[in-house]
Design a protein around this nucleic acid. Structure first.
Lengths: 237, 237
DNA sequence: GTCTATAGGGGGATAGAC
DNA sequence: GTCTATCCCCCTATAGAC
């Protein structure tokens, strides 16, 4: 599409951004459904109604496209997470923040992302990122999530006094597993659970996850506190 | 290798089974690390020191190889799970089984699988299976795990009276997330957690997961019980 | 039973027309 | 900025030698 067509330059730029966004949307969905290796650029460009070369033009490579897909969602999520975390602290009025409120601040911004109807693809993609074998991935993860994760660890540390930093990191992984795993299968979760677990009412799903995770964290705190008080390093089994 | 070589038929069969097993081992590891689409038959046969055609000879297709990899581990896991579950019930002496004991019966047999040192690949592969987009997968999952899962749901139902079947299914997904997610990244978990979460002492890891999951389940039961008693269907948010 | 060779298709990336 | 054509590699599966 050149200047000789009836579309002026401004429209061409708009078209360019539309193509770019269409590629990001299509890639987000297909990476989420099929994984990085399973989603071909051909499938992505076809779903985006773009041509094959567009990915290399806009993002340099398939990996560049993946980084762009992830990065696009992180800024809004981080901003909203911090806003809700600040709200927790305000509500606590200087005291230790409420565990459920911290967890809600952590998970709600991710659930809020919707690309079309149903469960958003980004959650499933984010879940996959822990197991994709791309070498650059841990570095990107640290850069995108490191600071905000640290602040949440601080908040959990105040909400659950007595847990070491290492223990808090472990607990956070268990919390993330609680939040991510049921969503990884997406619409096919029902097939794995005799059609019992449906992803229709996401508010109810989030509430269930938050309650479960809060119970898990409190149990960890109870144990660590008791263990430290008794000064033992031996497990019962 | 025909009868004319100096290896007798018996040795040829042994060699055949060794190749078959080597393929299963290599496939288990590579499927776990790279996913189904990311692990090529070339990489698998090379790791197994077998030739490219061997997979199609022994398993018919790449998908047949995956089913064989999974099926091989399930029988021992199921048998051990049922044995430990029966032990729980015996220890409970007719009363409701202990939540931690049921969870331990559920997870220990999977952790016990070791293929070489370190975390076993099968756990990571099992975790991936929930998100791999292979159409036959839910059917296989139901066939392999359906019966034993049902028995564990029964046990949880007794250990946590008041939870509906649907709610138990949901809670089981949260438990599975707790168990699987931290292992999905494998040795790279440390890179995501500022080198805090190491998979060196797997007994300690299992204890932490069981404690967390038990706390989560008890919190769910407390809520459901309270909700039913109040007869409410409204969440606070 | 194991291997080689190859068919036949799809992959990511790129050059150059428009 | 967008698209087409194409390079070259890797993929799975199969046929046939040994």
């Amino acid at each position: 599409m050149t200047a000789r067509t009836r579309l002026p330059g401004g429209a061409a730029e708009t078209r360019g951004r539309a193509t770019r966004t269409a590629l990001l949307d299509a890639a987000e969905q297909l990476f989420a459904e099929r994984g990085y290796a399973g989603a071909s650029l051909r499938a992505i460009t076809e779903a985006a109604a773009a041509n094959l070369g567009a990915v290399n033009y806009h993002f340099g490579s398939k990996e560049g496209l993946l980084w762009a897909v992830i990065s696009r969602r992180v800024s809004p999520v981080n901003r909203e997470r911090l806003r809700l975390l600040a709200e927790c602290r305000r509500a606590a009025d200087g005291g230790p923040p409420d565990v459920e409120a911290v967890l809600r601040a952590f998970v709600t911004p991710v659930f809020a992302l919707r690309a079309g109807g149903g469960v958003n693809s980004f959650v499933r993609l984010a879940g996959r990122m822990y197991s994709e074998p791309l070498p650059q991935l841990p570095k990107l993860h640290a850069r995108l999530f490191g600071e905000v994760t640290g602040l949440f660890l601080d908040a959990l540390s105040e909400a659950l006094p007595g847990l070491s930093r290492k223990e808090l990191w472990w607990q956070l992984q268990l919390v993330i597993g609680t939040f991510l795993h049921p969503l990884l299968a997406g619409p096919r979760l029902a097939e794995f659970t005799e059609r019992m677990c449906l992803l229709d009412d996401m508010d109810a799903v989030a509430d269930r996850m938050i309650r479960f995770a809060a119970g898990g964290l409190r149990a960890a705190q109870a144990r660590e506190g008791a263990g430290r008080a008794r000064g033992d390093g031996v497990r019962k089994r």
